[in-house]
Each structure stands twice: as C-alpha cells, then as structure tokens.
Design a protein around this nucleic acid. Structure first.
Lengths: 209, 209, 209, 209
DNA sequence: GATGAATGAGTCTTCATTCAT
DNA sequence: GATGAATGAAGACTCATTCAT
C-alpha cells in the first residue's frame, strides 16, 4: 500500500518532469536569453542535474523550441470570441479590446513570448513565423471584421484605420512592451490605460450625425 | 609630399577607427545579440583582427556600452521641437506625430536601440534606464504638454488619454516593433499607417461643440 | 500446466540471457570498437534495457572481456588435428593449411578476434596475451612439427622456413585481414587463393632428387 | 638583431606547429585509438593547450584525417622501382621483396597506418579506400607484373600464384602485423624471416627443367 | 598600432553506472 | 529480474582576452 503510494508519487513526478523542465526553461530563458542561459541553470531550478534535462530533451535548442510550444498561447480563437459579442458596436469593441489587454498585457506568457520573438527571432525564425500567424494575423483580422461590421451597421465611421486595425490596437501592444521592459521603472495603471485608450478609440471611430 | 599625404590619410583612417568599430559592432550585435556576437566577427567586418579591437576597447562589454552611446539617438529635443509648432492643435499634433514616426519607425538606429533594450536589458540595465529617461519620458512629456495646451485652448476634448499620452502614441511604437520583427513578412505602408493613425487620434481628441 | 510451460520457457530464456548479451556485444564491439560502443546499443540489440546488462555484467569492461572469452575460439587443438593426418606430407600440409584457412579466413569469430587484438590490444593486454598463447603459438608449433617430420621423412627440403613457419602460413593471415578490412572492396576467391598458396608452398618445400 | 633572431625562432616555431601537432597526434592515436585519445593529450605532448590544437585544426576528426595524410607513405612508386631492376628474375624478386619488407615491416609509419585501417576503418572509410588504392593495388600489380615477366622470360614457372600475388607477398604483411601487435612478446629476426620467406618463394616459383 | 598565436575558463553533450520501484 | 530516471564525470569545442613580435 505504501509502495503503491510511493509508486504513484514517482509516476506522477515522472509524468510532470517534462512540464517542470519546460516551465523552468521559460523562466531562465526569459531572464537571460537563449545563449546566456546554461542548461545547468535550468536543471538547478528544477532541482535535478544537467543529465536529466538531456534525458527529456535532445538539445538546448530543442528544449527552447518545445518551451515555446508549451506556452501554448494563441490568438487563434479571438475571431470566435468576437462572434459571441452582441449589442452596440462601441460595447463590442470595448469588450474586444478588454480581452486583448487581458491577453497581451496581463498574461505574462504572451508578453514574454513577444520578448522571445524580438530577442531570438533571428535564431528561431519559426518562432517569428508562428507568432505572426497565430497572434498578429488572427487579432488584426478579427478586429478589422468587427470594425467593418460596425461601419456596415451605421454605427461606426468609415475611418481609414478600419483597414489598418493595427493603428487602433497598437497601444495595447505598446503597453505590453512597456510592462515587459520597464516593469518597475514605469509602473502603469493598466485599467486607467485601457479606459483612456478605449475612450479615444471610440470617440475616434463613432459615426457622428 | 606623397609620404605626407599618405601619412595624413593614414592618420585620418586611424582617427576613424573607433567609429568604424562601433558601427560594425552595431551591425553585428543587431544581427546576433550580445552573447552570440564574437569580437572576431566585428573585427572582420572592419577589416582588422581581434587584437585591434582590444586596442580601442577594454572589453566586449565596454564595446557594447560605447556602441549604444555612439548611436547618439535621443528624444531629449522633442520638447523643443514641439515649441516650434504653431497653428491649430490638430496640425501641431499631426506634425508631432509625424516627427515621432520619422524617428521611431524610419530611423533604423532608434528602432534597433529598442531591440537592445528588450533583448539585452537584463544584462545592461543602464541601457534600459537611459532609454527610459531619454526616449520615453521626453516623448510622453512633450506629447502630454501639447495635448494639455490644446485642451486649454479649447480645441481638444479633456479626454483621459491626455494624462496618459502613451495611449495616443502607442501605435507608432507598435509599428516600430512590427517593422523590426516582421520586416519582410508583414510589410507596411508607413505613410498610410500614419494617416490612419492620425485620423483616428484627431477624431478622438477633437472637441465637439 | 500452461503456466508451468510458460515458466519453463521463461527460465530457458533467462538462462540464455548472458549468451544473448555476449553475442550482441560481439556484434556491436566489432562494428564500432570498444570505446565507441554504448552499453545501451548492446541492450537494444538484445531487446532489453541498460539496467539488465548491469545485472549480468559488472562493467562494460568486464562485458568486453567475457565476450572475448565467450568467442571460445582457439587453435589449441591444431596439434591434435595434425596428428590425425596421414599419407604423404604434401597431402598433410595441404590438409593442415586447409584447416587453417577454414578457421582463419572463413570463421568470422576468429577473424574479428584478430581485429580486437589489433584495435583494443593496448587497452586489453590480456586479450593480446591470450591470442598469442592460444592462436599463434599452437598454430606455428604444429606447423613447424609437421614440417620437421616431413623433412625427417625425406619428403621435404630442409628449408630455413621450417624453423619459421610463419613464412609459410603468413598468406592465410593476410587473407584473413584483407577480408576483414576490404570485404567488398577487394573480394577474393578463397579457394583459388588457397590453391595458389598451397601450390607455391609445396613447390617451395618439396625435396628434389 | 636579437629581435631578429627571436622573430626568426618564433616564425620557425609557428611554421612547425602543424607538423608538431600532427606528429603528436600520430603517437597518441596509435597508442589509444581515435575515440579514446583526448585532444588535450595531443596538446600536452606538443606542450601547448587544447585551444592551440583548435587554432590549427577544425575538429578532432579533421586532425585525424590530416594526420593520416601527413604520414605521406605510399606504395605508388613500387612499380617504378620494379622497372629499375635488372638481372635474373630471382634476383629481381628478392630485391622487390626486400623493398617490401623495408617498407612494410621496418617503416613504423606504414605499419601503424595499417593499424588505423583495421581499427578505425569503419569510422574513416576514406582511409580504407586510400590504403587500398595506394598500397594494396600498386604493390600487388607491380608484383604480378614482375612475376609475369619472369614467366615470359622462361625463368619462372607459370604458377597460379602469379595471378594472385598476395599469396606470395602475404607473409610480409603478416610479419608487419605480428610486429605491430606482439612487438615484445614475439620478437622476430626480420632478416632471417625475410631470407626464409624468399627462399621458399623462389624455390616455389622457379622453373624446373 | 596591428597582428595572430596561445591560453583557459566555460558550456554543451555523452554515457557508464546506480538504484528505487 | 527488469526498468529507466537520474547522476556526474569526462571530453569536444568556443571564444574573450593576452601579449610577444
């Protein structure tokens, strides 16, 4: 019985090892970047030794790549989310933006993924590609669709920004980066930032009679 | 005489060496990041050998720091620039934003400096500090002042964004990063982006009677 | 009953394990040499895991040594074989040489043992010693005895080669090595080689009246 | 002046480094084999450190390959040598064999090259190929040609061995290997061996009336 | 000033070996 | 008996840095 418990613990432990390692890798890579992170640092964080890392991952490079995959963050579903929205388009846009802030600014994983894209992009072009396809494109497409619907509904002005939704959402990305870089140096009130952003966007987009 | 000329040329050349090295360092560090760049790569780009680099710069670390200083880009003067503006505030804001785009999006040095801040920030906190003090603060302060003047003049709405100018300028930063990361993958028409951005900002800020 | 059978089979299987491992070790060590062969390669070949190898053999080194012993090839009996021969000495020598070819050239184990002696001799001097005592000495002694008898019988010439039988048998060793190294690059007709070898030896040794 | 001398010494030294390293590599690789030899061992033997080796040679593998090339031993010229011979074919064959012994048995480089072919052949197939093309083929071809001329001249018997000269020369190869493996365990009198070998070969080949 | 040979600390990676289950 | 996760010593290779010329 106690043996059964033990076995269970061990099996559990084992099943979790890859995840533990990937999580530790995330922290270390975030802190020092790909090249400057030593495999041994990651091992220490998990509480194992170098060799164990190599038992689960072929190379440091592979570990990095799988760590990125393991983040499993994506904006592929934002379009579906947009479809669930109803009511006046100003409300829909506000909700859409709120969701964007929650994911971009408040979700550390998404935030740090952007760091990897910028810092390690030249070494891992697949990461850049994936980020483009799974984040930028879905987000911008969903936003654009929402805007266009608002225009069609007569609620929004046919502003040029509607074809370039980046210009509308951009500030959220900037806050994401600002948080990432300055964290303590320039603490921002995310909610106030969000409200100010929405306020100006809606005033800028609303159709005037 | 020809010897004198030769000597002159050589002296000139020598006087330029540190700058050549710093320029080469910029290119290499941009391409591969601090750790992955080899001193020898920089030397090769200049056309000298490793030893020569060490004649001019104590260490690789020092070279990086001086390279950053040598970029000598700064937004410390944007406030002075704002003061030169006249006419309606919508025009002033448009001009101010245009200048921001020219510096943030079109000036490669400023753009890549941001990359260093993101990628090497944890290794070189002074770079982050300096970036904060010389770029973010001056830009945001000047923008805020401009907005506040516009409100005082009755031309602009007292939007909450006026206290958080990041929300207004943010999209320019985002375009900067987008260019930096995706370059070829997502080519953007900077002028169209700018126009759409200005359009929505001004519509969002303008005071309605 | 079926359980009994099963158990019987399993027991049988287990009894064979050490041999299976030794055979697998032979193949792997032949292919890559001692250092480059991984214990895990051997385990895979047997269809077990690393740990099992260590249940049967203390260390990789010990496994190698036992693998060599397990080859259980030897020329210790060639002297006895020579005694069984009768008839004219030319026939006896031909038969003796034929046997040497069968063992040296055609028996893969003997052939690869020579490879180990050459390649791993400095790491395993016992292997060299044993090879010397169990192969070289018995073969040469038996040959020399046969030749001397032939001379005593007046059938063979008292050639100096009789005291240095290596000079007579040498070509068989060379063919062994040639097969081992060149296999496909220089395929040889062993029988033709043998016949040509015997022909010249006998012509060289025969006493002329 | 002393500076000049110094410079000379240093330059000399530098020019010799690659050769020193190749020579040291030869000794170490002979002693322990490719895998078991540490680059640092080679460096120590030269009196430098690891890094220096890598200054001259890209990888351990490359060093091994160049070491083999640097041995610059070959039998490509034996055919030319055979043409210089004159007199009765028995004398020519004796001279030809003597030369073979000098190269195969007495030249340590040639001898140890054979060790590499046997021990590292599977890892370095080019070495095997080259050995086949530059040693085996030229030697055997030259021998065969000599034998055939002897037959044409009516001095030698049309023995089958003439088409398979390996059967005639083989013992020299065997002595080479014997020396390589047993060195001290089975010291051989090379000259006596040679004489005995020649004696039996010539008796075996000579045409009887 | 410039060179480039040399150094050696540092890092990735491998693999024999152990041992709890 | 068998497994395979874990260890850690060892070795290939890199590269910032030095320094004699």
């Amino acid at each position: 019985m106690s043996a059964g418990k033990q076995a269970g613990l061990r099996a559990q432990r084992k099943a979790q090892r890859p995840n533990e390692i990937l999580d530790a890798a995330f922290e270390e890579f975030v802190e020092r970047g790909y090249v400057a992170t030593r495999v041994e640092d990651i091992a220490s964080r998990v509480g194992v030794t170098k060799g164990t890392i190599y038992f689960y991952f072929e190379t440091k490079e592979r570990l990095f790549e799988e760590m990125i995959r393991h983040l499993s963050v994506s904006f592929a579903d934002v379009s579906a989310y947009a479809k669930t929205l109803s009511g006046p388009y100003t409300e829909r846009i506000k909700a859409f933006l709120r969701m964007s802030y929650d994911r971009l600014v408040l979700d550390r994983k998404t935030r740090e993924l952007l760091r990897f894209v910028i810092a390690e992009g030249s070494r891992f072009p697949q990461v850049v590609d994936r980020h483009h396809d799974e984040f930028v494109v879905p987000l911008m497409n969903a936003a654009q669709k929402l805007f266009e619907e608002g225009v069609a509904a007569g609620e929004l002005r046919a502003a040029p920004a509607i074809k370039i939704p980046d210009t509308v959402i951009g500030s959220a990305v900037m806050l994401c980066i600002s948080q990432m870089i300055f964290a303590d140096r320039k603490p921002q009130d995310v909610d106030a930032f969000f409200e100010a952003h929405v306020d100006i966007i809606l005033h800028g987009l609303i159709a005037k009679d």
